[in-house]
Amino acid sequence: MAAPKTPGKPCNFVDQDQIWKVHVNVELESAKTWPQKWGFLTESYNEVIQESSKINDTVVKLELPQHLKTRPPTPPEKYIEVGPSPPVPQTMQAFIGWRSGVPALQLERYGRVKCGKKSFLKELGWDLDACS
């Protein structure tokens, strides 16, 4: 056990070791006497577990109404079409962006992404250094 470090006071390692041994012995003794003092708690816990298992055996299963039931999932093949890919290029330079060259395979199906070019500070007529 590491001794507490306090400036200006000498540390006696033998006393610290004795204190640690006393703490360990107290823990061992209390572990031995716990069943006599508090063992009744384990018996009541076992009774509760047995009662709950009896209750779980007698549970009545209810049928959901038709309007609350979920439909089985639709297979993806029914609404997603995957066409053939273009042939793989032979060189590494041609490999970069080879799928984006085909218009049907481009990621931007709904047009280009438009980033805002306005500035809140410019709209108010403030300097750009007004907010930091």
Rank of each mutant, 00 (worst) to 15 (best):
V82P: 03
V14N: 07
D57Q: 10
T74F: 02
E51K: 14
E63K: 09
L62Q: 15
S44W: 15
P7Q: 04
I49W: 05
E47L: 11
K117P: 00
K32F: 05
G8Q: 01
V48H: 11
R109A: 10
I49N: 05
P84M: 02
F95L: 15
T58P: 02
S132M: 06
V88W: 07
F95M: 11
V82H: 09
F13R: 08
H67Q: 13
D127Q: 08
T91I: 01
Q50T: 15
Q93Y: 06
C115W: 12
T58I: 09
P65G: 03
G39Q: 01
M1T: 04
G101W: 03
K78E: 15
L124E: 14
L28E: 10
D17E: 08
D127R: 07
V113P: 03
E47M: 12
T70W: 10
P87A: 14
N12T: 02
Q106M: 10
E123P: 01
D129N: 15
F120P: 02
C11V: 13
V60R: 12
Q50S: 13
L68C: 00
P76I: 05
S132P: 03
K32E: 06
I49T: 04
W126L: 13
C11N: 12
C11G: 05
E63S: 10
V82F: 13
V14K: 11
Q50P: 00
L124Q: 14
M1W: 03
S85E: 03
P7M: 00
A104D: 15
N46E: 12
Q36C: 03
V102H: 15
V24G: 04
V26T: 10
G101H: 04
I96Y: 14
C131A: 12
E123C: 00
L105G: 04
G8I: 02
A130C: 09
P73S: 09
Y110D: 12
C115V: 12
S44Y: 15
K5Q: 00
K9G: 00
P35W: 04
S44N: 10
Q106W: 07
G111H: 07
W20F: 13
R109F: 06
P7G: 00
R112C: 03
G116P: 08
P35D: 03
I55D: 08
K32I: 08
A31F: 02
L41S: 03
P73V: 09
P10F: 00
E77L: 03
